[in-house]
Amino acid sequence: MRIIFSIVFLLVVLAINISAVRFGSFNLQQYGPKKSANETLTDLVAKILNDFDVAVIQEITDAAIKAPYVLFDALNKISKSKPYTMTLSERVGRTSTKEQYIFFNRESTSGVKLIDYYLYNDVQDYFERPPFIGTFEVTKPGSSGVRYFTIMDVHLRPDSAYQELLDMRRVIHDFILKNPRYFTDTSTSLSQALAANVIGATSTNKPNLKTNHPILIMGDFNADCTYISLTRQGTLRSIDFADFTWVINNEVKTNTRQTCTYDRIFINGDKFVKAIVPRSNTTVDFPQRFGMTMEQALGISDHLPIKFDINF
């Protein structure tokens, strides 16, 4: 009887893991002409990304815009039967050093479809690199109740990371205005959503955005160590982003040397958060997987990918 129970339990666990969709975010640290020309390195990056059904990428740095397509081709050589789509942002940055963001989506396994995307129109110049925003539709909604969600892909400027993170409330405000249908058709009205998304929050006026449309902020926040102090992190948690769940916490070190938690995932949306597989929110230790020395690992990136699994 115990053996039968164990087999049934194992099958249930396997079924849960098979159905789960894996989201990842990875700062590729100046993935440009030099790195993309290195076939071995590019193949390793593609193998890392192939573990994700949806991959959110930062720091593509090729002025000729060839590098992202080299990586895209390498990724689909690995995943021939279940290809990815690539959605590439425009090049962004205040200086001559510009970057691009990417959304990679393997629709056959992710069960989600990108239905809208744009770069935040940063007229007031709040950001070194304006966020790249994509809205996805869950093509086969399950028990979670999540039908649509939006990812805001960010690479915050290190010495301005705290202020740029505060200014993400402006990006959310802009998104609500651009997409009233996601807020007027739910229990939260458009006006209530705008009022709940407090810009310039205080201890007596905290944001309390609760909607049926999940918003995810993912990427390289530079949100730890010398860039955002523990004191400021505490303020962000308790006041400025009190209505978001911090899916990657300080116990998870996201730089390759594993000393700081630069990369983060913030999620606003209770249904989405509840559908995340417990303990799946962590890093991908690619140096261990591929038996790399620290020097070899840093050749790939000075960041580890971060990820979570979800059952829609």
Score class of each variant (00 low, 15 high):
Y69S: 12
Y69F: 15
L71S: 06
F72T: 09
D73M: 06
L75K: 05
N76K: 06
I78T: 08
S79M: 13
K82S: 03
K82R: 10
K82C: 00
P83Y: 04
T85I: 06
M86T: 08
L88V: 11
S89G: 07
E90F: 02
R91A: 13
T95V: 00
T97V: 00
T97I: 02
E99T: 10
Q100R: 06
E107N: 03
S108L: 11
T109Q: 02
I115M: 06
Y117D: 14
L119I: 14
N121V: 13
N121C: 04
Q124H: 09
P130A: 10
I133M: 12
T135Y: 07
E137Q: 13
E137K: 13
T139D: 05
K140F: 05
V146D: 10
V146Y: 10
V146I: 04
R147W: 06
F149H: 08
T150M: 10
I151G: 01
D153S: 15
H155E: 15
H155R: 13
R157M: 13
Q163P: 03
L165W: 02
R169T: 00
R169C: 12
D174R: 01
I176H: 05
L177W: 13
K178L: 15
K178E: 11
K178W: 07
N179I: 11
R181D: 14
R181N: 09
